[in-house]
Design a protein around this nucleic acid. Structure first.
Length: 933
RNA sequence: GGGGAAUUAGCUCAGUUGGGAGAGCGUCGGUUUUGCACGCCGAAGGCCACCGGUUCGAUCCCGGUAUUCUCCA
């Protein structure tokens, strides 16, 4: 095999091949003719795997193909990778294993028409014991984003075939040397041990028994669980001693086989599952590293092109040992960013978007240590698309969108850094000034907590100046903050405690066609506790076996209405549903008493339901029109459909211009007039997606989905209630467009009667204005603008005409006269005057004018509206002798007031002045007394 | 969901014992120049986010709202 090694592109004729298989079942998937041509080692039980160092170099495309083909041949259904955003699983931030999309199947809540599946699943892991976000890049085998190859059995085959498959695939098809493979099994799992040793022939010495921590898997505290068995690869003596122990980098775990055979109940005891299942996961990147004979995942063909490009942009040597961590982190994170954005996640301050933001910032930080100052990540995402687009068709169409989102976020981070740097510089300067050895940890925490300036950056910059940081104090502050968040979460959890026993119930929704139905009351809750009866006047939550009430979902609000039993009458205020499928009716009993087991007649408020349908159908049309006008990057990011309005959030870079909004609105109205029939059909999920129906990431879809479409204009997966034809909407009106967070916009709109009422109100308002001003519609704006300009002009004139300014028409104050009448006190001219109509500002201006011209002191007051103003102003050279602040403090009591100010200017307010002349005299006396001594 | 912060001229931002709203850039005008850039002189441009409270007086203190930034979950 030596002559065939060291080539990335494996040749057709030496593609691993095997005709017979462990089970007699033939592959379900189509296998091409070429595939049938036996390779040189076809059926080659005799063929020896290549020795290390000369093994086949399998490109990742080839690894994928071989994997799929092998398991398809063993009767597995090939299933697409699910999105990184898990379908309605609030316990999970991201899809983190191949089994996620099959969780419901394993839990037997969901049925599929196949019992074996094979996937290559994209995954994200950003926390956990083995994969702390901050460690990624330092190790050779950990990533935030990675791919998991997996085969699954849903109550079909179990342990033995699972082991045989994995062994055969690795040794015969991927041609790994059997003597390099080490096996671990769960301590008590003798069955697995025997399979490996006796059935497969692995020497005892290479089978290890490990404890629960490593080799027992469970989904949660309760539910399916079981032992697992891992396959490790021995990389050879150059990577460490031959002891198979934790932490020895010579051995790499490549495949984990989980044998789901128990169910753990609430008491912690294990019950055997009637139909044990198999869940396996093999890390794509590790397998590629092994099969490509490289020492690190980052040197596989999955990463090399990205790292090459990064090194090129930074103009650094990609082989330099000092650069490895930075290059690895950048490559890892840009892969994650690219896939996250392609799956509809946008940078944000919380949740998934926050993870995205942190990944980007960490990548920027490592880019900086490579010398990349400007935004660079968006240039790398294109390379990720290049590498991965053959396997992930969602990437190519989103390519530009991804780059733009990254570029925008990079720019935002640059701004945050620049702002934080200013504050940091002050801190550092102060530390240098006072010769502190370390920067305060609480200061640094404030810097990162409030201004987003990362501790890493602060540490590096401080070190350059020979200043340390108080890391412990920082950690303490961080811990306190975490404690606060945790406490608030606990409180929140207590508030929304689930209804006891609710998971037992499931309600059938019959409300697509009927708005009335007969139903049986299965369970009732009053004040969060299960109740047998709900009495007149009480409010409670009811669960029926079937119901026409639509529960809040997919943005559409829940129905309201009423119900009647033989002995009770109640109103339904709102309808919600649980994850397990119970439909909760929030009711108030008006008359009589309801008992569980009662038969009742349920009736949805039909006109409200109809208004909701009007807005829901309009929402689909708005979505389609936005994509038509703005582009295909527009994706729904949330919505709320109510009877009186609709709200639609979507991904888009910038504000939607008035012109674009007009186009969208008119496109929707045009389609309304075309009166498109609204079709509903159910079909398999994949078929629906392939035919172009839009799916919303956050929604959970089963095997068969409901598709709501309007001609070729709109097609969406949707469980909501709709009209029969678009024409029933009548009128569609956008009323607001706004930003919801960066990259996400919100449109609020009205449809049907609500739209009509809105337009009518606007029309009435306009008519009122036109009638009042006696204008025609076209002339109104200019008329009002003219009015506004004239008003501003005359306001300015009034200001200028205020007392103190020259040329005042009404009673111009005679400045020269006032100065002439100044009475000298201690040789300084002091003007004391009453200006009855002047406001505070006018008094100030005039006092300044006087004190400047007379080089003396001015004390002026005015009175009106039951209040008085007093100002005192002192020429600047005289403030040592006459202090305006002191003067005003003495004068203010004369008008029952208080005041203060600076030494050259002060003001006060008080009661109205009864006798201005007397007040002038008293002020004069006060000043006089002060300067007699 | 829980903290912290920001919001002042078209833009970037100053503005503390609570006392008259500022700078740089940009805009406009003048000047200089064959012309432009530069230089010099000048001007316009502000409900100091919004609502309430405290105070004689609030950009400043307190409470609330909105928007944005940021950390934690």
């Amino acid at each position: 095999m030596g002559q065939q090694s060291r080539r990335i592109q494996a040749q057709e004729d030496r593609r691993p091949e095997r005709q017979g298989h462990v089970h007699g079942r033939d592959g379900a998937a189509h296998v091409g003719d070429r595939r049938r041509r036996p390779g040189p080692d076809a059926g080659g039980h005799h063929s020896r795997p290549s020795p290390a160092g000369t093994r086949l170099m399998l490109a990742n495309a080839e690894i994928r193909r071989v994997f799929y083909e092998y398991f398809q041949k063993q009767g597995h259904q090939r299933v697409l990778s699910s999105p990184l955003v898990p379908a309605k699983d609030p316990t999970l931030l991201f899809t983190n294993a191949g089994m996620n999309q099959f969780k419901g199947v394993f839990l037997q809540e969901e049925k599929r028409d196949y019992r074996r599946a094979v996937t290559i699943q994209k995954c994200m892991r950003v926390s956990g014991k083995h994969n702390d976000f901050d460690e990624v890049g330092r190790t050779e085998f950990h990533h935030t984003f990675f791919e998991m190859l997996g085969n699954f059995s849903f109550g079909d085959y179990f342990k033995e075939p699972a082991c045989l498959y994995s062994w055969e695939l690795l040794t015969r098809h991927y041609r790994l040397a059997p003597e390099r493979l080490w096996i671990t099994v769960f301590r008590d799992d003798d069955e697995a041990f025997r399979i490996w040793e006796e059935r497969i022939g692995v020497p005892r010495a290479r089978i290890q028994r490990l404890g629960e921590k490593d080799n027992f898997w469970q989904m949660g505290d309760t539910g399916p669980c079981g032992p697992c068995s891992e396959i490790h690869y021995d990389r050879g003596p150059e990577f460490g001693p031959p002891e198979f122990v934790d932490g020895n980098r010579r051995f790499v775990e490549i495949w984990n086989l989980v044998f789901m055979q128990f169910s753990r109940d609430a008491t912690g005891t294990l019950q055997p599952l009637p139909a044990p299942s198999i869940d396996t996961g093999m890390g794509m990147e590790r397998l590629a590293a092994v099969l490509q004979g490289v020492s690190s995942n980052y040197r596989t063909d999955l990463f090399a092109p990205i790292i090459e490009r990064a090194a090129e942009l930074a103009a650094v040597d990609r082989e330099a040992p000092a650069r490895q961590v930075d290059l690895n982190v950048v490559a890892d994170h840009v892969r994650a960013l690219t896939f996250l954005i392609a799956d509809g996640i946008m940078p944000a301050n919380d949740g998934r978007g926050y993870v995205l933001r942190r990944l980007l910032r960490r990548a920027v930080k490592h880019g900086r240590s490579l010398g990349l100052q400007d935004a660079f990540l968006h240039q790398l995402s294109g390379r990720v698309v290049e590498v991965m687009k053959p396997f992930y068709p969602e990437l190519e169409p989103a390519r530009d969108f991804i780059a733009r989102v990254i570029a925008m976020e990079e720019e935002r981070f640059q701004r945050t850094l620049a702002n934080g740097l200013k504050i940091f510089d002050d801190l550092l300067a102060a530390a240098l000034e006072t010769k502190q050895e370390t920067l305060s940890g609480t200061d640094l925490f404030r810097l990162s907590d409030t201004y987003g300036f990362p501790l890493d950056f602060a540490r590096d910059l401080a070190m350059e100046k020979g200043v340390g940081i108080d890391f412990d104090a920082f950690q303490l502050a961080l811990k306190e903050q975490k404690e606060r968040s945790r406490l608030s979460l606990q409180e929140k959890r207590r508030e929304t405690a689930a209804l006891p026993g609710i998971e037992r119930w499931h309600s059938e929704f019959v409300g697509y066609d009927d708005l009335q139905a007969e139903a049986v009351l299965r369970a009732a809750y009053v004040d969060g506790r299960q109740a047998e009866t709900v009495a007149s006047g009480q409010t409670g939550i009811l669960v029926f076996d079937r119901t026409p009430f639509y529960a809040e979902s997919g943005g559409q609000v829940g129905d309201s209405g009423r119900g009647r039993g033989s002995e009770a009458y109640f109103t339904v205020r709102d309808t919600k549903k649980t994850a397990a499928g119970a439909i909760l009716h929030e009711v108030q009993v008006q008359e009589g008493t309801l008992k569980t087991g009662d038969s009742v007649r349920l009736e949805v408020d039909a006109s409200r339901r109809r208004q909701i349908a009007v807005h829901h159908t309009a929402t689909h049309m708005l979505h389609a029109a936005l994509r038509e006008v703005l582009g295909l990057h527009v994706k729904q990011a949330g919505s709320r459909v109510a009877p009186d309005k609709l709200r639609f959030d979507f991904t888009h870079f910038s504000a939607v211009s008035a012109d674009e909004l007009e186009k969208v609105e008119s496109a929707v109205n045009e389609k309304i007039r075309e009166n498109l029939p609204v079709a509903r059909r159910t079909q398999p999920y994949e078929e629906a997606i392939r035919s172009g129906a839009m799916a919303i990431f956050e929604e959970k879809y089963g095997d068969t989905v409901r598709v709501v479409s309007m001609g070729d204009f709109s097609s969406e997966l949707c469980g909501g209630t709709h009209l029969q034809a678009s024409g029933e909407i009548g009128l569609f009106k956008i009323i607001a467009e706004s930003s919801i967070s960066s990259g996400i916009r919100r449109i609020e709109a009205l449809a049907g009667e609500a739209a009509y009422r809105h337009v009518a109100r606007g029309q009435a308002l306009l008519q009122g204005l036109l009638a009042h001003f006696g204008q025609k519609p076209d002339g109104l704006l200019d008329f009002l603008k003219g009015l506004e300009a004239r008003a501003r002009e005359s306001e300015k004139k009034m200001k200028k005409a205020a007392p103190g300014a020259p040329g005042t028409p009404a009673a111009p104050p005679d400045i020269a006269g006032l100065i002439r009448d100044a009475q000298p006190i201690a040789g300084v001219p002091v003007v004391i005057a009453s200006l009855p109509d002047a406001d505070r500002e006018a008094l100030s201006a005039l006092a300044d004018e006087i004190k400047n011209r007379s080089r003396g002191v001015a004390v002026l007051f005015s009175s009106g509206d039951g209040r008085s103003h007093v100002v005192a102003s002192v020429f600047k050279d005289l403030t040592a002798r006459f202090n305006a602040n002191i003067i005003i403090k003495k004068v203010a009591p004369l008008v029952n007031g208080k005041g203060g100010g600076r030494s050259d200017f002060a003001q006060a307010g008080g009661d109205a002045v009864a006798d201005p002349e007397e007040l002038k005299e008293r002020i004069g006396r006060v000043l006089q007394e002060d300067h007699e001594a």
